[in-house]
Design a protein around this nucleic acid. Structure first.
Lengths: 217, 217
DNA sequence: TTCGTTGGACAGTGCCACTATCCAAGCATC
DNA sequence: GATGCTTGGATAGTGGCACTGTCCAACGAA
């Protein structure tokens, strides 16, 4: 198909597709001649993936490029590609290691991983961006004076582990070997907004149950 | 304290504090004279809250203003203020109701709410932004060809309901009546990044357990 | 041949979260 | 009381990002 059809079927404006091509998020179409390029179903799928990452997952364009680079890198074994792709994802500001709240958060997080027996996470603790995000969020809450019980954190972590198990079961049963990396990355990027939405809906529901009718007029 | 001290203690640059004042995220200090203003602990706390919402929660400045406006609105009862504040939060692009995937997602989401017995959510379905986010995320996944079992969604929803119960228990036991709205809003804004981080860590851990050592070198 | 269409290059736009500069009033010291 | 640093407020500017608009030469259908 031509650019125009690709645009039509994906709902993405032509100018934007050109931009993604320029940024290297899409591979160029097969050149038919100097003034015509042909795109196929793979391009369409990739374009939809890119759009979903950017619009639903709010991933910056540069990060999408990096993530896709890892997904496509056939020179690496699957687990490594997946890890590298997830690695590229989150962009929380670096925690200030001097800050007392950050240090406190490190301690609590380390204890948490130990309680959970997440030995892999423990080994990667110093470098995993997810771990860093966790510390930043915890430090922010602490700085605001919320001093929660480590048990609470443990309970949250168990819930999210439950979600991770669901994610990976899904990947195993529903994706072909070739698609597993892409599916897993999507799991990290697109399932999260879904979980967030469910979380907020659940808060609204539970709040209405406890304190009365749902308000919001 | 003066602006300079407020800046020092919060770690936020003076110019940025001035910007927040301009944008109405902070109430002006008590004017001592034409050229001096005095700030107190409440300002510091509010500033930290604003920073956490913007940097950890990635909430846009305009949205922070709106959310805080609801939090501070003493003319409304608590549940309504909370609802209104949460209402202002998410900024997913409007789903295109013409799109077949969006319509399909609506159906699945409605069934989900019914299965869960979330009657409050059902009543608000047409307008809740969280519901909209859910539909958008589901439609994006479907468009990419992931056709999951409604049971899976149900399992995710139960997990997130578990998280919501934890949130609200925390609010009940740890916040004074006056602080409940603020605490609950924080629950929505700051706990989410924490959950997300835990989710990704759990994915890394579970993935390492299933497929071998943690890779990423 | 004509004329609308196509893909690529490149410059421009709009938004957003800051950030830098000015300025006059305060205050501290001499 | 003069000098000079600091302060708060107003205003303009910056840099990043995700597009978007314009131009142009080459196609290609009529």
């Amino acid at each position: 198909m031509r650019l125009a059809e690709l645009s039509e079927r994906s709902g993405v404006p032509i100018a934007t597709i050109k931009y993604y091509l320029r940024e290297g998020l899409l591979t160029p179409g097969r050149q038919i001649n100097a003034r015509t390029a042909e795109y196929d179903e793979d391009h369409l799928r990739r374009l939809r993936l890119v759009r979903a990452m950017i619009q639903v997952g709010r991933v910056p364009v540069a990060t999408v490029r990096e993530v896709l680079g890892h997904v496509d890198d056939d020179s690496l074994p699957r687990t490594i590609r997946l890890g590298a792709a997830l690695w590229a994802l989150p962009q929380v500001p670096e925690p200030d290691e001097e800050d007392e709240y950050v240090r406190g958060a490190h301690e609590v997080a380390d204890q948490l991983l130990e309680s959970l027996g997440w030995s892999n996470a423990q080994a990667l603790v110093t470098i995993s961006p997810s771990y860093r995000s966790l510390v930043v969020a915890m430090a922010a809450l602490r700085r605001l004076g919320y001093d929660w019980d480590p048990q609470l954190l443990l309970a949250y972590a168990r819930l999210m582990h439950g979600a991770a198990v669901l994610d990976l079961d899904f990947v195993e049963t529903h994706a072909s070997e070739a698609e597993k990396v892409e599916t897993a990355v999507l799991g990290a990027i697109l399932v999260e907004p879904m979980l967030q939405a469910l979380h907020r809906l659940a808060q609204e529901e539970e709040s209405a149950r406890r304190y009365g009718f749902g308000d919001q007029e």
